Amino acid sequence: MAINWFPGHMHKARKEIKKVMSDVDVVIELLDARIPFSSSNPLVGNLRGEKPVIKLLNKADLADPKVTEAWQAHLEKDNAVKSLALSATADGKIKMIANLCRKLAPHKVDSDKGISAMIMGIPNVGKSTLINSLAGKTIAKVGNEPAVTKRQQKIKLDNGITLSDTPGILWPKLEPATCGYRLASTGAVKDTAMEYEDVAWECLKEFRVLYPNALKDRYGLSEFGSDEYELLEFIGKKRGCLKSGGVVDVHQAATIFLQDLRSGKLGRVTLETPKMMEAEMAEFRAMLEAKREQEELAKKEKEDRSGKRTS
């Protein structure tokens, strides 16, 4: 099952962001430190052009610290990018964001207009919480579900920086499919747009390889079974997710697993590494190229058959 979720307000937000981007000095893109690649919206790169960007790896307290370091080194290979790992809910590093803005827009430091920074990111990545922390008061509405912010708003900070908050936007088609599943597993996609069992199965494929001990410790497992479905059944049995007749309620087991992942009860985990995503994207691009060649060949064969019929 492919996961796609692009509400109407996201399309509207994209158009509005494009209109005002010329007035922005620095883009602040919030990423989920557990899935830095999958939570990086390709539309952000298209919209910002050559504007400098601060990539904040939020929820770093839930992510694997060694993998987070690897992602920061990978991201900063681009000279226009600065990165910072933090937790928007409670982190002294939040004060460092203003300093990074000044470094990336030195020509605006002493300007009467100050620095204009736009915060962008996928839904439910913590933008509103970060803005409230930067402002030192509750300005942006916060909710533990995606798509709480529906429109742009500007917030003037005491340090000469004006923030533009934008709604969390996904892109119309979440590809490759694995990115869609990772986004769903961390809560960036509304639950009504996903099947819990499908998302849990896909997530467990990676989890049993990357963090097998986390599964063993959390659910008291001694074995994982032959596939993800059997592993989910084991989790369900350990958590008492049983229907009449002793049948495992796989949906309930999937819900428990995903809630444990999102809340950090499975420990500090990251579901993708830079090397892993480079390999995955190379495979995805090769698949697209093969599909394009097949479509061109089918088109040519159709044209040849049509030409024979008319001759």
Rank of each mutant, 00 (worst) to 15 (best):
P65K: 04
A70R: 01
W71K: 00
W71G: 04
Q72N: 06
L75A: 12
A80R: 15
V81G: 09
S83G: 05
S83R: 01
S83C: 09
L86S: 04
S87W: 02
D91H: 02
G92C: 11
G92L: 10
K93L: 03
I94F: 06
K95L: 03
K95G: 05
A98M: 03
N99R: 11
N99L: 13
L100A: 07
L100T: 07
C101G: 01
R102E: 12
R102W: 00
K103F: 00
P106H: 08
P106L: 13
H107F: 11
V109F: 09
V109R: 10
D110A: 06
D112Y: 03
G114P: 05
S116M: 11
S116A: 10
M120T: 14
M120S: 02
N124D: 12
V125C: 05
G126W: 08
G126E: 12
S128F: 07
S128P: 03
T129S: 15
I131F: 06
S133N: 13
S133K: 15
A135L: 05
G136F: 08
K137S: 14
I139G: 09
I139N: 07
A140D: 09
V142A: 12
G143P: 02
N144F: 09
E145S: 12
P146C: 11
P146I: 10
A147V: 12
A147H: 11
K150D: 11
R151C: 02
I155H: 11
I155L: 03
D165H: 07
G168R: 09
I169C: 09
L170Y: 01
W171I: 01
K173H: 12
K173I: 11
P176M: 04
C179H: 13
G180M: 07
Y181H: 14
R182M: 15
R182N: 10
L183I: 07
A184Y: 05
S185M: 14
S185N: 08
S185P: 00
T186P: 00
T186Q: 10
G187H: 08
G187A: 07
A188I: 04
V189M: 04
A193M: 06
M194E: 00
M194V: 15
E195I: 10
Y196I: 00
